[in-house]
């Protein structure tokens, strides 16, 4: 087991270096000089040169790449072009907010989709199953934006059940603003997730061991809840772990529409204002988180599945 974890950790290093380098290349093919953009239209040559030096743009490419890695390791990404704040502070502030939105939504939507997925897999082929699947396919054929717009318009604007938008950093005060976004978030996640879980459950239901369990005299529910669930939980659990970084990243669209100052909102504003350092650091950090959680997911997989032989 130890050797496996070490091997997996060692394997993550070239992946991390390669991925960050790929991002580095991508960000450096951008036409236009960031220093020019930052200095403004009427800057003198000297001013531009000073800014270039400050940003490390006069270094050779490997020096610039090294700076990017250093930023990641020291968790110091410099300052935003737009707000002039330290990016690290902006990210830390946004992460808590995004988590307040993402985590409850994640827990609720996962519970609902697992439960519904299990029930419709159990009654596969029934009217209930067909109805739920049809509804979820149809629901997915409408743009996410439409749901957000409609939810905001009807539930908040027309019916006045919730605030239309806004946020309160206070831990108690924030929830009145978060209820509607969470509801919409859950609604958007359940449709695709429950089909995913249904497929996993059905794949297991057709395995030979299910027939054995039934031939022992176990009832349908015992077969499903004991035998099938434990097998299905392996792919489900590892899949859930991978989605955790996206919780912190938050729902970009929902945050933007409801003006919740999370990481998603940060990204949208950075796009609108062409704030490259923020976008780059968010991308690098997001990728880093994704690699780490992938690693955790792999190790978890090896731990929970007895078939994985660790040599």
């Amino acid at each position: 087991m130890f050797a496996y974890i070490v091997r997996r950790l060692l394997y993550a290093i070239p992946i991390l270096l390669g991925t960050t380098f790929l991002l580095f290349l991508l960000f450096n093919v951008v036409p236009g000089d960031p220093a020019l953009q930052l200095a403004g239209k009427h800057a003198t040559r000297e001013v531009i040169e000073t800014i270039r030096a400050e940003l490390g743009l006069n270094k050779p490419w490997y020096g610039q790449y090294f700076d990017m890695l250093k930023q990641l390791i020291t968790f110091d990404f410099g300052r935003s072009y737009w707000t002039k704040q330290k990016i690290t502070d902006m990210i830390l502030a946004g992460a808590g907010t995004s988590f307040s939105l993402g985590f409850p939504a994640f827990v609720i939507s996962t519970s609902i989709s697992l439960l519904v997925g299990l029930v419709i897999a159990l009654y596969r082929g029934s009217k209930l199953d067909k109805g739920v699947v049809a509804f979820s396919v149809a629901a997915q054929s409408v743009s996410l934006l439409v749901y957000i717009l409609a939810g905001q318009y009807f539930l908040a604007y027309k019916m006045g059940l919730f605030p239309i938008s806004g946020y309160d950093p206070d831990f108690i005060g924030r929830w009145q603003y978060l209820v509607l976004p969470i509801i919409i978030f859950v609604f958007l996640s359940v449709a695709p997730e429950l089909r995913f879980y249904r497929t996993i459950f059905l794949d297991e239901l057709y395995q030979d061991y299910v027939r054995t369990a039934r031939s022992k005299g176990l009832g349908t529910k015992a077969v499903l809840l004991r035998h099938v669930l434990k097998n299905a939980m392996i792919p489900i659990l590892t899949n859930l772990v991978i989605t955790i970084p996206f919780l912190i990243l938050g729902s970009v669209l929902i945050e933007s529409f409801f003006q919740i100052p999370g990481l998603g909102d940060l990204i949208v504003k950075a796009i609108a204002n062409n704030d490259r350092p923020v976008l780059i650091s968010m991308t690098v950090l997001g990728t880093f988180a994704y690699i780490i959680f992938n690693l955790i997911s792999d190790i978890l997989y090896a731990l929970v599945d007895p078939r994985v032989q660790l040599k």
């Binding site: 991925t19 991508l26 960000f27 991308t283």
Partner: peptide, 20 residues
């Protein structure tokens, strides 16, 4: 190579490409 690309959250990669 494909693992590297897959490691960049799709949405952020889309943005990175769009910026570039």
């Amino acid at each position: 190579f494909s693992t590297m690309l897959a490691n960049i959250p799709e949405f952020l990669l889309l943005i990175a490409i769009a910026i570039a």
